[in-house]
Amino acid sequence: MKIRIKFRKYGAMKFVGHLDMMRYFQKAMRRAEIAICYSEGFSPHQIMSFAAPLGVGVTSDGEYLDIEVGASKTSGDAIRDLNAVMADGVEITGYQKLPDNAKTAMSVVAAADYDLFYKEGYHVPASVEQFEEGIEAFFVRPSEVLVTKATKKSEKTMDLKKLVYDFRIRVEDGRPVFYLLLSTGSVDNVKPELVFEALLASMGLVFEADAVQIHRRDVYAARALKADDGFRFCSLGEMGEMV
């Protein structure tokens, strides 16, 4: 049976990297006595895969991992048992059964959305109005927004106009919060810091990585719409059903 687990990652846990999170969940499955399936062979490993790796320092309300289980507890019991063995800073918020033919979270990821904001104690380098104007000039008005990102071997030029699906600003506690909905996954993966750094550069400002908290809100798959040839984003947490 395929199961999709949704979790939040916050607080000090943002310093635990992706590979360590995978090891963390392997042990958590044992502690919570989830009847997870193992691969064959001499060193069997748990059948488990993550949707989209989260960078060190980034918090999230919408992380996903898919597992395969022999028999399942009810969603409520599984969430309770898992949360009973979590470290502070990881909270299980969903446990759903997927259709048997469902593709893994990793392979269906198409987008993710983020909030970016200046951390407490850090100077916000421009006013909300200046940022609004900056986004207009950098992103909304141009017909293409080309940025280059360094990959392992070479540089890649991307048009953010096609890969940033939403970019707006709102105000919370008098401070700007930037919202980004970005193409994510193995083909066109856009990182939020890349977009934000490009915005700041267009405004003549410098991006300081540790001044800005990046918070992932959710991760989405693309679902085709029947009526036309458009598509809509569907949260990875809404593709299964409760057990």
Partner: peptide, 13 residues
């Protein structure tokens, strides 16, 4: 398809 404007999911700070 247009997504609705984002609401704060919880107090970020």
């Amino acid at each position: 398809q247009e997504k609705t404007a984002p609401e704060p999911s919880r107090k970020l700070h």
